[in-house]
């Protein structure tokens, strides 16, 4: 048994135990939460269809592969799988687009391949940066966001470099 596969079951058990202990109606609470998230997932669908069209045609035409080849000197230097380059570019711009690309990488390379693992780590440890910064400052009267975007992108770039490194370190090749 490895530790990372035990974290989730332990966490779930802990939440349920605490809920029962605090006399929460776990059935009502669970179904309420599930219903909320189902609605959100369905709301995601129209955007996902549109992005799937863009990413799907880009991949089928061979342009995505050509782009990865073009960037291969940089990705090779960083020890980053070339297949994941398009994901790294699209991740800060579009969440649904990144989901569509991640699905392609997992299908093409396999989820347990080096590229599949790096793509998963990159997806799990970054956010839709541009959207987040726009939404957060959009709610205020702030005009100058100073270096908020720059700092967040510095985080994204380090995640890009570190994801390949972390996979090598923790999971081997």
């Amino acid at each position: 048994m490895n530790i990372s596969s035990a974290i989730l079951p332990a966490l779930v058990l802990g939440v349920f135990l605490y809920g029962v202990f605090k006399k929460v109606d776990v059935f009502a609470a669970f179904t309420e939460g599930a219903k909320e998230n189902l609605k959100i997932a369905i709301g995601l669908l129209p955007t996902l269809v549109f992005l799937s069209l863009g990413v799907g045609t880009l991949r089928a035409s061979g342009a995505l592969e050509a782009l990865s080849r073009l960037a291969s000197p940089i990705t090779e230097f960083l020890g980053f799988p070339a297949e994941c380059f398009s994901l790294a570019i699209l991740r800060p711009i579009s969440g649904s687009g990144a989901l569509a690309i991640l699905e392609n990488i997992l299908e093409d390379c396999g989820p347990d391949s080096f590229a599949g693992r790096v793509a998963s780590v990159l997806m799990g440890s970054t956010e839709t940066t541009f959207y987040t910064i726009a939404v957060y400052f959009g709610a205020t009267k702030i005009k100058k966001t100073r270096h908020a975007l720059g700092s967040a992108l510095a985080g994204d770039i380090s995640a890009f470099i570190l994801s390949a490194l972390a996979v090598r370190l923790f999971l081997g090749r």
């Binding site: 779930v12 605090k22 609470a29 669970f30 939460g33 219903k35 909320e36």
Partner: peptide, 9 residues
């Protein structure tokens, strides 16, 4: 969402 609703409540 279901699990986290229990955590919240």
């Amino acid at each position: 969402g279901g699990i986290m609703k229990i955590a919240e409540k």
